[in-house]
Design a binder for these strands. Structure first.
Length: 896
RNA sequence: AGGCCCGUAGCUCAGUUGGUUAGAGCGCCUCCCUGACACGGAGGAGGUCGAUGGUUCGAGUCCAUUCGGGCCUACCA
């Protein structure tokens, strides 16, 4: 049966086929009734608004690798995909689209707005799926549920009401971060700080009823219009006599008190501070302590309002200029100094945040944080890498109140209703018919929505049927692992921990794996807003999603950043192609072999594979014994790496085995056997190579799902078998391990490499066969080479190989020696003596240094008494070998 | 201001409890378009591990100081 296999790996042909399969199939749909261990994963929120870049791929890559690995080991796996954000994001997309059409979403009315959101969702649903298909199978959309689905909204309301009833959620009048562009409150975490050069203006405030005056320093002169006091330190001798008097606020001509407060730093500026309770968090607190009035001089969008008198209507920065000018002309500007300040910016739009006092909903965090701290301290939640634990503790132990209301439209609305008659607020799970206190029917729902992270923080249990006592909840909660980037440790991880423990009494996950941040070649974090992201779809189209996944996995060493340069993915693509071609080799040659009668079914059936490695003449052939031993060791290392979230080690292990061991050595070695005229020998070779190839595919599968799936289906599989992902993951089989075979095979590799090396140095044409001599005092080594003479002749391109105990005394030709053996090629043409000498000299230097340092160490009594026996013996063994080599080099140098 | 991380071959990075001539991929050099693969094969050159000092029989690996780069947290007007 002739097979048609493309000459090169073409991901664009293979992957869509399987992508469709993955998305459609319910492979990862967990069954709560299924027996066996459970592995459940919380997936971070994918962002479907278009800011998808390679950085976002990392979570999904790692999660999917783990999922497949666990699935192949018989775990019952559940994904909890973070589609919560998808709902919010959908709303934001609609807002953006409306804005592009010049429509302000606020003016649509909430119902009309939500209608459009649903419409967009329906229309674009397919588009999202197609997009996700192209970036790979890494996200499971089959469980797609949007935030605004009735089920999730009900959970959010339930949580809100419970926290409110417990007194943890309250309404408060405080200073909050306000974005004048987004027109909403921001939590501290949504404010990013940036160092910028600024100015410190010194302004003179005359003291009422005297010729004295005070100089205050400020970086924001426009806020002085709202000043209601000047503060000095209570023990500051310079100003002691002024406390209790009044100052005349320039420009506004308002008398304001001079107060004493310990908050003032005597060293900074002039030691006198203007107090603007409505526009600064510290001043706000001071204002409360001293019962000062708050004068808000700005509008929502940061223009000056009527309270600013002559400045009303100006933008805050124009007002600043004008205030400074006016002060200057009044002679009240004492001095200006340069001053670097750290400005708070809105994370989303980068507008300078305006501190603003307003009434908002808050959540008390201390009672929630304490159990979450304890969970990490006790190890019930493991944070990997460990250094992030310290960061977590630091934040959690200094946690502040969380303002949870947002003046946005996207998100869950706050379940609170204001009574128009008596002002009472009714908090309820369902829309109340009447006010709790006065029974009035004039109720208006609070216009605010909840911070996105409020609902996201419920994800691990809100998706499993909570507050009901469901089977899913019992089986899958707590989940096993959360993988995400460390940038949302506080936003999301910590809040899930707090809310999960609070509402279920159990931690939401046992392991938190925080991966590195992906940056571009310039070292910048990938970000859509900065324009530094790389679109993974483009890259995938070019190289394939398997290459993308393998690249991310191989670079995902924990603890440090990951820089995306683009050349690693080329090497991953090459690796995929290499495997593809190894498979082609098998099938193309099998076609020829099959004409002799024995077919694929017999050679590669599941039963045949299970019996490998097969024997010939009562022994497993050396190369096969070696390969299966390598396979066992690789499987062990890879399993171990994945168990410890060391994806890069897993990737490297499989790469080395598949390319280095399987392709470069094993296939080359068994080529003749596969076509052997001895049918029995050939069948053994075929059965072994198929078994090894199959195992290697399974080993690679989590790291390259599409390619391995495709090739797996080329081989005979048990009836009803659907996917390699449901096959077994290779384990380290003890009976495959064979230290002796590894040792013997590697000696042969050494001999072959040394011979190739000589050939290369002599610049021999690669087709030119030459004769060589092998000599070794070790009878075992001689018989090894003797037995495998054909292979050595073939791989080292020799016409003949003489084997002897003693090196022939003949001078001339090219020579290569190790402590175990000598190789000589008696070639007529003189070897470049000078080059040979230089090479040997270099080797001599290195070797001599190594020998000297070992001799020194071994002669040291302290070393001998303190170093472990193993080290000493190893050192001695190496030393004796190196001495032999050194001697041979000296001899050879003498000859030249 | 406090905390964390990084500085290893030209580039991007590995290097788990300190232990034998420090590894990989890409790039570079030489030879080869050989029937799985030029997205390939074979061979090779190239680092003394930012700097200094210390602990130790022994340090890329631990400690201190220092220089350089990055990140996070912070209410200094």
């Amino acid at each position: 049966m002739a097979r048609e296999i493309a000459k090169a790996y073409e991901p664009q042909l293979i992957e869509p086929r399987w992508a469709e399969y993955w998305v459609a199939d319910e492979l990862f749909k967990a069954d709560a009734n299924a027996p066996g261990p459970v592995f459940s994963i919380v997936i971070p929120p994918p962002n479907v608004t278009g800011s998808l870049h390679i950085g976002h791929m990392l979570d999904h890559t790692e999660i999917d690798i783990l999922t497949r690995w666990h699935r192949m080991r018989g775990y019952n796996t559940l994904y909890l995909p973070g589609t919560d954000h998808a709902g919010i994001s959908t709303q934001r997309v609609v807002v953006k689209q409306l804005a592009e059409q010049g429509i302000d979403y606020r003016k649509l009315g909430r119902e009309e707005f939500e209608r459009r959101v649903w419409k967009w969702k329906e229309e674009s649903g397919g588009k999202i799926t197609e997009q996700m298909r192209q970036i790979g199978e890494s996200c499971d959309w089959s469980r797609e549920k949007f935030t605004l689905s009735p089920e999730l909204s009900a959970v959010v309301r339930e949580v809100f009401v419970r926290l409110y009833e417990e007194g943890l959620i309250y309404r408060g009048y405080y200073m909050v971060n306000w974005c004048p562009s987004c027109l909403t409150t921001l939590s501290d975490l949504e404010v990013v700080h940036e160092e910028r050069p600024g100015t410190l203006w010194h302004i003179r405030y005359p003291v009422v009823g005297s010729s004295e005056s005070l100089v205050v320093a400020t970086t924001r002169p426009e806020t002085m219009l709202g000043d209601t006091a000047v503060a000095v330190h209570p023990e500051d001798e310079r100003y002691k006599q002024l406390v209790g008097k009044k100052a005349m606020l320039p420009l506004m001509n308002r008398e304001i008190p001079i107060i004493a407060d310990a908050m003032v730093d005597r060293e900074f500026g002039t030691g006198a501070v203007k107090i603007t309770p409505a526009h600064d968090p510290d001043d706000f607190e001071a204002g409360k302590r001293h019962q000062l009035a708050e004068i808000n001089v700005m509008t929502d969008d940061a223009h000056m309002n009527a309270e600013a008198g002559a400045y009303a209507g100006l933008d805050r920065f124009e007002a600043r200029k004008k205030v400074v000018e006016d002060l200057k002309s009044l002679g009240l500007l004492v001095k200006t100094a340069e001053h670097t300040l750290s400005l708070g910016l809105c994370e989303r739009c980068k507008t300078i945040v305006e501190p603003r006092a307003s009434t908002q909903w808050f959540c008390k965090m201390k009672p929630l944080a304490e159990p979450a701290i304890a969970a990490v301290e006790s190890g019930e939640i493991r944070i990997i890498p460990e250094n992030w634990q310290a960061v977590y503790f630091h934040w959690m132990k200094n946690i502040r109140e969380w303002p949870i209301s947002r003046q946005l439209w996207w998100g869950h609305r706050i379940p609170a209703w204001h009574c128009r008659d008596d002002g009472h607020i009714t908090v309820a799970r369902e829309t109340p018919a009447a006010c709790e206190t006065c029974g009035s029917k004039h109720l208006v729902q609070d216009p605010d929505v909840l911070d996105t992270w409020f609902s996201s923080g419920l994800w691990p249990f809100s998706t499993l049927g909570w507050p009901g006592d469901t089977q899913d909840l019992r089986k899958y909660y707590p989940t096993s692992v959360l993988i995400t980037g460390h940038e949302i440790l506080f936003f999301w991880v910590a809040r899930m921990a707090m809310l999960g423990i609070h509402f279920t009494g159990k931690v939401p996950f046992h392991t938190v794996y925080l991966h590195s941040i992906v940056k571009n070649a310039e070292g910048q974090k990938m970000s859509k807003s900065k324009g530094t992201g790389i679109d993974p779809i483009d890259v995938n189209r070019k190289f394939g999603t398997d290459a993308m996944r393998f690249t991310l996995a191989s670079m995902a060493a924990p603890g440090s950043d990951l820089i995306w340069t683009g050349d690693r993915i080329q090497s991953s693509r090459n690796f995929a192609n290499k495997i593809w071609n190894a498979a082609r080799f098998l099938f193309v040659n099998l076609d020829k072999f099959e004409q002799g009668g024995t077919g694929l079914e017999e050679l590669a059936s599941p039963e045949a594979r299970a019996g490998a490695p097969y024997q010939f003449n009562g022994n497993v052939p050396l190369a096969d014994a070696w390969l299966f031993s390598r396979l066992a060791n690789t499987a062990e290392a890879v399993n171990d790496a994945l168990a410890n979230y060391r994806f890069h080690e897993a990737a490297q292990g499989v790469y080395q085995f598949f390319w280095g061991d399987f392709c470069d050595w094993y296939i080359e070695w068994v080529k003749p056997e596969l076509q052997s005229a001895n049918r029995e020998r050939a069948v053994v070779a075929w059965k072994n190579i198929f078994a090894a190839f199959d195992a290697a595919l399974r080993l690679l599968h989590p790291l390259m799902p599409f390619l391995t799936e495709e090739l797996w289906h080329q081989m005979p599989q048990p009836a009803g078998a659907k996917s390699i992902a449901l096959d077994k993951y290779p384990e380290a089989r003890a009976e495959w391990k064979n230290a002796q075979a590894e040792e013997r095979f590697s000696l042969m590799q050494e001999v072959i490499v040394a011979l190739r090396n000589i050939r290369a140095e002599m610049k021999l044409d690669s087709k030119k066969r030459i004769a060589a001599e092998f000599s070794s005092l070790d009878a075992g080594a001689r018989s090894l080479i003797e037995t495998n003479r054909d292979g050595v002749l073939r791989l080292a391109i020799l016409s003949d190989l003489k084997i002897s105990a003693e090196r022939s005394p003949q001078p001339g030709g090219a020579l290569r020696s190790t402590s175990q053996f000598d190789l000589r090629i008696a070639y007529e043409e003189v070897v470049d003596a000078a080059a040979e000498k230089a090479r040997l000299k270099k080797e001599f230097d290195g070797l001599q240094k190594a020998v000297a340092s070992k001799e020194r160490q071994l002669a040291d009594e302290t070393f001998r008494s303190r170093a472990p026996e193993k080290i000493i013996r190893g050192l001695e063994a190496t030393l004796s070998g190196q001495r032999v080599e050194l001697k041979k080099i000296v001899e050879r140098l003498g000859q030249l």
